[in-house]
Amino acid sequence: MSLPDRAAGLPGLPKDGNGPVFAEPWQAQAFALAVELSRRGAFTWTEWADMLAAVLREATARGAPDDGSRYYEHWLVALERLCLAKGLTDLGTLDGRTDAWEAAYRRTPHGKPVELQAGDSAST
């Protein structure tokens, strides 16, 4: 858009140029996961909006910066919580898989695809 971003000049509001939609790839992935899970019926969009609103309320209540820049961090927290609440995965599995990916990055030489090994973490 070539038009000026008028709201960018509002004192007290975060600036928002016409930059990329997602600041980092993980934000796009987290966004798409929530939309796709809702589309396929894992949860309703109203359940999603309620969860996101609850996470945002908590962030405000504890005085976390809520200028919109950490929006997708809150989005991810809401996504994890809703997936756990719906039994799509469990905390132990999720933590184990996170560690497994970290290990996979550390052991994989540059230029090679990062892949999990058999036994890295159970998927059930």
């Binding site: 993980w26 992935q29 987290a30 996961l33 899970l37 991810l76 996504l79 994890e80 997936c83 799509l88 995965t89 599995t93 999720l94 898989r97 996170t98 497994a100 990916w101 999990l116 998927s123």
Partner: peptide
């Protein structure tokens, strides 16, 4: 964390 959740799903 995102990668872990996505791969499980």
């Amino acid at each position: 964390r995102v990668k872990a959740l996505e791969s499980l799903l």
